[in-house]
Write a protein that binds this DNA or RNA. Structure first.
Length: 702
RNA sequence: UGCCGGAUCGUCUAACGGUAGGACGGCGGACUCUGGAUCCGCUAGUCUAGGUUCGAAUCCUAGUCCGGCAACCA
């Protein structure tokens, strides 16, 4: 190990939750004891966002020698199922955490009920007999004051009697509720006499039909925490406004004082995290199930080949704060690669095969090569790989015309076959359609082992398999589930319409013989391609591999630079260039943004366009739809939010305006917007920039 | 037109009145029988305007922008 160790080697990065826990301990609260809990509702599968919470809850407990319970928040019998209870427990353990205890909020129903009776006796709660609709009505809203329910001051004895009869099942759903008597006109809506209990004649997954009244989250949660003597009740930001209620329950019930702390939930680019949306994708058949390898669920990530170590490292790295944030999914991918690089055996598989015949290698002969399973880890051992006259290489590794940076196969070029020998492409064989179907190559007989006898350097190394001595395999090439960075945030567009149609591409490939022995769950690296994980769908003799994550592909990056584009390639796609920020986020900042260089400005292609059509968009109150002639034969459609300044859009027709033509087209509810019209705001509203007669359509504006 | 939060490199995050640091990304280089891995270097930030202070990302004031809150959901 290294003696010159870095300052925070090993120490988890500090965050405000840990700081608060440290503060509490220093203040001597609870004698320094730390107890947390992870409280999922069993109505769906855990996802990577939960992983962040789990790492925090269990991590804090572990760090301070405390405990962390797994507690199912099962207070709503109509949405919860044991299937989820089992899956959640399995996921937590898979992630690497063992709960100090497993509890259910339903374990406490009896105690919760007794406390409710007490609150009524104390005059801190009452039974309300208004309808759901009326309660909502009386509650008012952010701007309208709340009004007391006529039942608010009903005698204690009457409330108590009603509560007992509610429990006894004398009333139908909705007939009565228990409400806290706090402040019917609080500026915090959560305090406007919130509901504590409602009647639900529905069987519960654990208590069956024992109960027909069920406590609400805001009531059950603080009291469950109290019963378990939780010292720090960590939850997400949206519960911040509930904290006064959390404290109220503890106060009025006179129970153990736990403290609620809130942090920002995790968002990830190119995915969705809400249970509702995940469930919808399962229901709509967009994915094959909760454990579809494209899902951000722990079950999905596991099947995809993500490791608990990678997920934990990721969760540690992203930190914990109170500001909303969206983490680049690339960071998650970085951590899987880092982990998988260490542990995955290297094997060869060809996913889109192209036949290569080594003309100077005898027909029928087989040469067994001994190849390491991990070039950086000799302890991983080796395997035998058969070399024969007819081989298969990746189609992508051959190019008819090669630029000088191309190290791979091309007519006349020499490359190395990994762990085998050097070959030169002599001849390209085509079929009737002109498709390349075979390469005829010669090998350098002195190059066995991979090095040239004369010491010449060969930069390209290709993976390959023997055509006959290889096995068939199915590879499921997964990509990001969505094609936009933040699905579901474009107005008028459903997140379901933003699903990446190429998020799963299945190919039939060939793998080296060693691959016949893999078992579901095994992870491997197919050299030069990606990490893969064996899917449970595998059958003997025909394994199925899920692509976990591609290897970094610096050739793709180089090529994109050479071509000057970043078009999505079917294979390991280069990371799409960062999209320009959404206008929403850029806002209409009056002050200039960060300084840009002249080269940035030159990226903007501004052209003169003549307005042909200008009309209001009926469904939108700020938009005009323009058709602009840019001199390229086809008018462009542009939606522009300038309607307020142009009550009569017709005045724009015939105007010469400035159009940003290389703006990424944006799909809007009303159609595709293929550019942006320059406008400036002044005293009399926003005006589009116009030009005089001299400028013609399509002229570049510099 | 209310209440509660929040704002630091492109992204995530640290700095707790005293050198704005790390990670990812990007760029450049070294090395390489994976255009992988590894290593090195560079790039880039305190929302705005005032104030307090010897000194402000940090404290104060005003503003801007973003998020959450009106289930008998959690």
């Amino acid at each position: 190990m290294n003696d010159t160790q870095k300052p925070d080697e090993g120490a988890p990065p500090s965050n405000f939750i840990r700081d608060l826990v440290v503060e509490d301990r220093q203040a001597g609260k609870h004698g320094g004891r730390v107890a947390t809990r992870f409280p999922p509702e069993p109505n769906g599968y855990l996802h990577i966002g939960h992983a962040k919470a789990i790492c925090l809850d269990f991590g804090v407990a572990r760090e301070f020698g405390g405990t962390c319970n797994l507690r199912f928040d099962d207070t709503n019998p109509t949405t919860e199922e044991t299937e989820f209870v089992d899956a959640i427990q399995a996921d937590v353990r898979w992630l690497g955490f063992e709960p100090s205890a497993v509890f259910f909020a339903s374990d406490y129903f009896e105690e919760l009920y007794r406390i409710a009776e007490r609150l009524i006796e104390q005059g801190d709660a009452y039974v309300d007999s208004l309808s759901e609709e009326q309660i909502r009505e009386h509650r008012g809203n952010y701007y309208i004051a709340g009004r007391p329910s006529p039942y608010r001051d009903r005698p204690v004895a009457e409330s108590l009697d009603l509560l007992r009869r509610m429990r006894a099942g004398e009333f139908p759903d909705g007939a009565h509720v228990v409400r806290a008597k706090i402040d019917f006109n609080s500026p915090n809506m959560n305090l406007r006499d919130p509901l504590l209990y409602r009647i639900r004649h529905a069987p519960h997954h654990r208590t069956g039909t024992t109960w027909c009244i069920y406590p609400m989250y805001d009531y059950a949660h603080p009291l469950s925490d109290a019963i378990e003597q939780i010292t720090h009740s960590i939850c997400t930001l949206e519960f911040e406004a509930h904290r006064p209620l959390y404290d109220w329950c503890i106060e009025k019930a006179g129970v153990f004082r736990s403290r609620q702390l809130e942090f920002a939930r995790l968002n990830l680019t190119y995915t969705v995290m809400s249970k509702r949306k995940l469930a919808e994708m399962v229901r709509e058949g967009v994915v094959r199930g909760w454990d579809d390898p494209r899902m951000p669920t722990l079950a999905g990530l596991r099947r995809r080949g993500y490791t608990p170590e990678a997920i934990r490292a990721f969760c540690e790295r992203i930190g914990v704060a109170k500001a909303d944030s969206t983490v680049d999914v690339g960071l998650l991918e970085y951590y899987v690669r880092e982990d998988l690089n260490r542990r995955s055996p290297r094997l060869n598989a060809v996913l889109r095969p192209l036949k290569v015949v080594i003309t100077n290698f005898p027909e029928g002969e087989v040469r067994e090569l001994d190849c390491p399973l991990h070039p950086e880890d000799p302890a991983a051992g080796s395997r035998k790989v058969p070399f024969t006259r007819t081989l298969l290489v990746e189609r992508d590794d051959f190019r008819e015309e090669a630029v000088k940076q191309w190290y791979r196969l091309a007519p006349g070029k020499e490359v190395r076959l990994r762990y085998a020998c050097l070959i030169t492409c002599d001849e390209v064989v085509r079929d009737d359609q002109g498709q390349v179907v075979e390469l005829r190559c010669t090998m350098d007989p002195g190059s066995w082992g991979g090095n040239a006898p004369d010491g010449r350097t060969v930069k390209g190394t290709l993976h390959w398999v023997s055509a006959e001595r290889s096995i068939p395999l199915e590879a499921r090439l997964y990509d990001r589930l969505f094609r936009v960075e933040e699905p579901g945030t474009t107005e008028g567009v459903s997140f379901l319409d933003e699903v990446n149609p190429d998020s799963l591409v299945t190919v039939e490939g060939r793998g080296e013989p060693w691959l016949a022995s893999v078992k579901p769950g095994d992870g491997v690296q197919f050299e030069r391609l990606a990490y893969f994980c064996v899917d449970p769908d595998s059958r003997p003799g025909r394994p199925v591999f899920n692509r976990t994550v591609t290897l970094r592909d610096s050739w793709a990056k180089l090529e994109a630079k050479l071509t000057g584009t970043q078009e999505a390639k079917p294979a390991p796609a280069p990371k799409p260039a960062k999209e320009p920020k959404k206008p929403k986020e850029k806002a209409k900042a009056p002050e200039p943004a960060a300084e840009v260089g002249i080269e940035d400005f030159q990226k903007l292609d501004l052209r003169v366009g003549v307005v042909k059509v200008a009309e209001v968009v009926p469904q939108a109150d700020k938009l005009l739809r323009l058709e602009v002639d840019l001199g390229d034969g086809r008018p462009r459609q542009v939606f522009s939010g300038i309607r307020a300044s142009y009550p009569d859009p017709a005045v724009l027709v015939g105007k010469r305006v400035a159009v940003l033509v290389n703006l990424k087209p944006r799909q809007m509810k009303f159609g595709l917007s293929e550019g942006m019209v320059l406008a400036a705001g002044g005293a009399e509203g926003v005006r589009v920039c116009t030009f005089d007669e001299g400028a013609g359509p399509g002229d570049r504006i510099t």
